[in-house]
Write a protein that binds this DNA or RNA. Structure first.
Lengths: 105, 105
DNA sequence: ATCGTTTATCGTAAATATACGATTAAATAA
DNA sequence: TTATTTAATCGTATATTTACGATAAACGAT
């Protein structure tokens, strides 16, 4: 694209779009589910559960961290990742609000 | 990317990621709100409410149509767009399900 | 001090997304 | 018929995303 016009929209729309972007790849959705369901928090463990390389999984984790859906705590040489309940809740409310508003059911 | 690995994930994850992708640009969120709030359905009317060109808005509408969040009905030379309540509802449930599952609040 | 483990980052290639103006296609109006 | 209106598509430029292997950085173990 020539230039990004994202900054011409308002806070709320940008936040929601940003959260949606973070959820816009199946690997990242899977990662959230893995962090919830399996008793797993390390990048290496996630790599073993996905058909992707370590560097690619690390990139996906970075994207999830970027918007705050996931946090990483350093534990020696490892990093323990977990979902950030506050931001998950915030995302849940934001999507529900938009989609309820938009749907006249 | 060398190759897409999206097909290595399951239906549910792909659907959700696809819906998220459609919502991952502020302009498309705004378009959903415009179709709901303003008494407007034509592409041209939407263009006037956004800082984007007609061709760009048409592309965004195409993306929303692709996942079924929006429908377009041809009315002579115009096309009347509207949100597809069924898919909006489906999206609402899908996001709520994922984010409720993932959040242990 | 060296070696293994773990994760992040770099470099790179290819796909996709975003934006625009120009053009096309289809319907209506003159 | 010709002109106008409306939306889609084409062509193009640039940015971003996705993916990988290689490397670096940081820590723990030997």
């Amino acid at each position: 694209m020539a230039i990004s016009k994202v900054e011409l929209f308002n806070e709320n729309e940008i936040l929601l779009a940003d959260l949606a972007k973070a959820l816009s790849h199946p690997a990242r959705i899977k990662i959230l589910q893995i962090l919830t369901d399996m008793n797993v928090c390390m990048c290496g463990d996630i790599v073993e559960l996905l058909p992707l390389s370590q560097s690619t999984v690390s990139q996906h984790l970075k994207e999830l961290k970027r918007v705050g859906l996931v946090q990483g705590e350093i534990e020696g040489q490892k990093v323990c990742y977990c979902v950030n309940n506050k931001m998950i809740e915030k995302a849940k409310e934001a999507f529900a609000k938009l989609l309820s508003h938009v749907c006249k059911c």
